[in-house]
Amino acid sequence: MQLQLEGIVKNFRDKEVLKGISLRLENGVYGLLGPNGAGKTTMIRILADILQPTKGRILINGQDKNACGDEYRAKIGYLPQDMSFYSDFTGRDYLEYVAALKGVPAAEAREQIEALARNVGLSGDLHRRCVTYSGGMQRRLGIAQALLDNPEILILDEPTAGLDPHERIKFRNIISAYSKDRLVLLSTHIVSDVDSIAKQVMMMEYGKVERLGSSEEYVRQIENCVWSLRIPVERLVEFQNSAVISNVVPHGDMMEVRVISENKPSADAVPVTPNLEDAYLYIFNYLPLKPAA
């Protein structure tokens, strides 16, 4: 499976939201990171075929997606950012409905629904109405619907929002197992989700994907830029206005602060091993792509 974006531009009236994105994606998990307003959801919607680009094209295995018609969407499993439900549908109704939308034969759909419900831990709740589900259950139901019909391309927009830590780990395991011979695009604000399962991470800002690399490559970029130091509680507010802080852990009257900085922030600061979250903060605070004037 190969998905190629060629010069994708998207304008909303006179605002250019995507500025000529070109990418080549193959099987595996791709993480998509970026601040709010970067254009992640717009790019994902274009890939999910619910939004048309102003310019550019998308090729799937070398063929223009528009020429594939319904068959392009048949390859896609999509979990939108905002989950929606019909008020009188049970979990099973919802999954059966999505299966019908995907053209899965009824008998096969029943088997898939049982298996997916087991995988996402909803087997005992399928008879309940979706609107009575907790936020996490609704998200798991969303993940199950995206996986219906075993799509070749899985597009997930904020899939772990609302999931508790246990559910997030379970979700990552499902995606890892699933992604062996599939393409998964995972857009999220939770960097640790991407860190653990993505083979490549895209950093997006101001409508451009400027960086694409593995977690290790990103982390290597910020070696010697992550520091740990202790400061009194009363100095924290002032300190965070002048430094990029990735974590704070209280230690009695003192706060242990993890700081991203190209220079040693204080005499008692000690270098620590960076992670992807540090790299994310470093990139978006120290190497921002400025929009064209």
């Binding site: 999509y78 939108p80 019909y86 939308l101």
Partner: peptide, 14 residues
Amino acid sequence: TGMDNLILSSRNGR
């Protein structure tokens, strides 16, 4: 309801 996201991205949603 926002269900058009799923409908329009599906094989039979058009």
